[in-house]
Amino acid sequence: MKRIILILFIIGCVVAAIGLVITRPQRLQADALSGLTPDADRGRLVYAAMGCASCHMAPGSDDPTRLPGGKSFVTDFGTFYAPNISTDPEHGIGDWTDEQIATAVLRGTSPDNQHYFPVFPYGSYMRGDPSDVADLIAYLRLLEPDQTPSRDHDVGFPFNIRASLGGWKLLFANPDWIVTGDLTEEQERGRLLVEAMGHCGECHTPRNILGGMNTNDWLAGAAIPGQKGRTPDLRAPSLDWSAADIVAYLKTGLTPEYDSAGGEMVDVIANTSQLPDSDLSAIAAYLLVVGAN
């Protein structure tokens, strides 16, 4: 009997060890950014497309170049606070290497090899392009430092066990595209902007009980965590907009009925309105494909 318990205990330890190895934080390859020539001007557009400021600006701020963090995200798992990602070396990311920043964005892993909570939308960003992230980093390094300390998340047991996030990533963070099949070059550009950089699915796709996206209901609209109201379904026929309507909306925030964007979407429009028309048309072309499927 004692022997059986000992064997079971050893098996349990081995399984746990294998689990921890499988779900350990992943980093980018050391040479992932080598050979790239970062362009900060392009990085400004990447920054807008990825919507960094919407979450990392001070609460209530309209200045997308100041990134002290502090905005709260009330969820079923606790309240998260966006951290300072300004160039301040102590409170921000000023002393991080390019590889550390890119690993955070594309793998959801911190410089000290911890998993980030998926409130940071790395599950979307990981579908992105390292060269875009290299441009982004060049732009981020031009922004003002801010000495506001980051606030600790208010997350209770068991969700505060960061090692368990490796399991979450294994289940729900997937670098594969959601929409596959024959796409035009423009539709592919739109897919990159929507599925990866713009991380639209993070708010517009419903989530399961563990907070993973139900990708079968991709962009079907979802409850807004911690608030009343829902984000709208972006699929036709629910969204009965032409490509020109979508482009105009992303540029001005005005719907075809000339109502305006509200809530969090106002900050999103502040970002998309900076993108070139070709990108907005690409987003529209992609969304019409999602609607047609």
Binding site: G229, A248, K251, T252, S260, A261, G262, G263, M265, V266
Partner: peptide, 21 residues
Amino acid sequence: AMGPLGASCGGCHKGFRQPDE
């Protein structure tokens, strides 16, 4: 001028209007 005009609508609708149910 449409962008800034639309954005000014959003200025109030961001924090002063309840999102649709």
